[in-house]
Amino acid sequence: MNIFRFAGDMMHLTSILVLLLKIYATKSCSGISLKTQELYALVFLARYLDLFTDFISVYNTIMKLVFIVSSTAIVWCMKRDRVVRRSYDKQLDTFRHYFLLAASFALALLVNEKFTFQEIFWAFSIYLEAVAILPQLVLLQRSGNVDNLTGQYVFFLGAYRAFYILNWIYRYFTETHFSRWIACISGLVQTALYADFFYYYYISWKNNTKLKLPA
């Protein structure tokens, strides 16, 4: 464990806590893409298949459980909770995310560390996570003004993978046989997708104005 990865994990956890706060405090999921939440739940379920077979550390196990439970609870809440689901922007959240699923799985079959069930699903979760934010970014562009909690949610979600890139650079230079090309290249793509969001987020923070993504 290094400071970059720990900071990244804490930012990831913060993004989930901010999203939970928004949904439970405002009893509303307006501006949140259910499709992105569904993709994230799949990312964690596909990535943490080794939850019960490989014990890394207490921290690792607890965080995996937190990510799986929180992501599935958010999807369940946006679909089933009578109050919350009324505020879901169904007509705006129209990104065809099944293509992202199919493309990620196809790529995982072609590019993986080992052609085994667990490694293919791990690579699938890495590729899917890189593109999972797309429905959410499209929804933000369509829904015009973005409320603070939603903006903070997306910001921390983007920042966490940027810290993981620093973590991979650090591990590359400090550990002998460290090579995580799949995660690293995918992480670069993932963080690049947030580039324009970060720019408009910075502008809104600098000018102290409402965050607005151009359509």
Partner: peptide, 10 residues
């Protein structure tokens, strides 16, 4: 599974 290919990251 050998230790080095364990996925120790979240």
């Amino acid at each position: 599974r050998s230790t080095e290919d364990l996925k120790d990251e979240l």
